[in-house]
Design a protein around this nucleic acid. Structure first.
Length: 430
RNA sequence: UCCUCGGUAGCUCAAAGGAAGAGCGCCUGACUGUUAAUCAGGAAGUUGCAGGUUCGAGUCCUGCCCGAGGAGCCA
């Protein structure tokens, strides 16, 4: 017998089906037993009675524990009392694997306990919903880029040096030489853009900073598109369109998951690009008007990002950051060498920076000067400077952080729940 | 690295220097429409670790370990 997934259950009303899954919860009233079964695509309530259910199966249910794996056969019924509108009258039941003392009960738990049990926590409905939305976001990002002619390439994880000078890197022993886990595919994107025109890389990035906040992980994922023959505005347009598309895809394809999370979707529904734009110097003024102090030349901290983001009901694009708070490869604004052709996109509701990007320096001499002034060591960047020797062109791109984006779309407070197995300061288990 | 809070039953928490408790989960029993079902009973403890003060420490003191929130840091 072929088995059925719960997400397709509406097609099987009044038909016999077989569902293979796990016991989510159980309620018993003696002569009638209610069994919540999940199969990875959804949850359905099975009802067992002495009338409908074969006696052996009925007594088996007495000893079922939470998360026992079971195969359940029965007839699908429409029922207004059920949360999903359908129920299963259980005819028979088979236990595949028992589950003794399942630690995560349907009551509240602490963060540490849940993270120690992340390998099974992801079975819980909210975690399940978040990770389904993450998967949709990842697929939507790729669909969006492929539709626009971008080619995916994969940047290396082992890298010879810092992409950015100041960041703390994870060092590994690479056959006796030091190598570092990549903190960005950015520089490789630029090489690849000159080979393929429009490209993106998508993968993990690593940071060894001792950041201990709700918006930091030591291992996180980002998508980084790069376009040859492009400028700041092209990059902003691409990023804004991508965010608009991600919202649309999640609202259409993951509506049920947003309901599980009790997300207020009216806050997402009205969001269309282009987003409001503000120059860095005006953003600084605005931050001070809104009651957070900040001086020109400082980067936004969490409180500053929050007040700016909360001031708009859509993402907001901040442009033209000062040179000293942006990476060495950012191109300067023509006529004003102190500002860069850079941008960040801040998510609303206080979720902070989800995109950072801009136009890259494509003139070899200016790039070399910047590398020298920052004391970065030209040797490690020889290949990168080479790109400016052989047919250099204006180019631009950005990076979008998957976890922060998913946290915003889901309306959850901590990004550690947006990745299946989070790596945070002091935690690399399970 | 700094600041603040915390660590007691499998889990979430109470016990204001004087007999270690409750709810959930688990075990036993009752119940034909439950929605974190309900009701009755039961088992379950090296109070993070080490030292100290005290007649007496889960509680006070010192050091350490672990966790959380935030700051700093952060393509």
């Amino acid at each position: 017998m072929k088995y059925t997934y719960i997400e397709n259950i509406a097609d099987f009303v009044d038909k016999e089906v077989e569902i293979r899954g796990w016991v989510y919860n159980k309620r018993s009233s003696g002569k009638i037993q209610f069994l919540m079964v999940r199969d990875g695509t959804g949850i359905i309530q099975g009802v067992a009675t002495e009338k409908d259910t074969e006696p052996e199966s009925f007594s088996l249910m007495d000893n079922l524990d939470q998360e026992s794996s079971v195969i359940v056969r029965g007839r699908v019924r429409e029922d207004k009392r059920a949360p999903i509108g359908y129920e299963l009258s259980i005819g028979s039941l088979e236990v595949v694997g028992e589950s003794k003392d399942y630690p995560i009960t349907p009551k509240s738990h602490g963060v540490d306990f849940l993270l120690q049990n992340r390998h099974i926590w992801i079975r819980s409905s909210k975690q399940w919903a978040i990770l389904r939305i993450r998967a949709e976001v990842v697929k939507a990002v790729e669909d969006y880029l492929w539709e626009r002619g971008f080619m995916r390439f994969d940047a290396p994880i082992f890298t010879p040096s810092a992409c950015e000078g100041t960041t703390t890197l994870f060092e590994v022993d690479y056959f006796g030489e030091p190598a570092y886990l990549s903190q960005s595919g950015q520089l490789y994107c630029e090489a690849t853009a000159s080979a393929f025109g429009r490209v993106y890389c998508f993968g993990p990035a690593f940071r060894a900073e001792k950041s201990k906040t709700r918006r930091h992980l030591t291992e996180f994922w980002q998508v980084e598109p790069e376009i040859a023959y492009a400028h700041l505005d092209d990059s902003i347009e691409l990023a804004s369109g991508m965010i608009e598309y991600l919202i649309e895809r999640v609202l259409i394809n993951r509506k049920r998951e947003l309901e599980v999370l009790e997300r207020n979707i009216s806050l997402l529904e009205g969001i269309k690009s282009p987003f409001p734009r503000i120059r860095y110097k005006d953003a600084v003024k605005k931050v001070n008007e809104l009651g957070e102090s900040m001086n020109f030349g400082e980067d936004f901290g969490a409180p500053q990002e929050t007040v700016i983001g909360k001031n708009y009901d859509s993402p907001v694009v901040v442009t033209h950051f000062p040179r000293e708070i942006k990476a060495f490869y950012m191109r300067k604004e023509p006529g004003n060498e102190e500002l860069t052709l850079s941008f960040d996109i801040l998510a609303p509701e206080g979720y902070g920076e989800i995109v950072g990007g801009g136009e890259r320096e494509f003139e070899a001499e200016k790039l070399k000067r910047e590398i020298k002034e920052r004391g970065l060591g030209e040797d490690a960047f020889k290949w990168y400077i080479d790109l400016r020797k052989y047919g250099s062109v204006p180019h631009a791109g950005f990076g979008l952080g998957i976890e922060r984006t998913v946290a915003w779309l889901c309306g959850i407070t901590h990004i550690r729940q947006t990745i299946p197995f989070p790596r945070t300061l002091g935690r690399a288990y399970p």
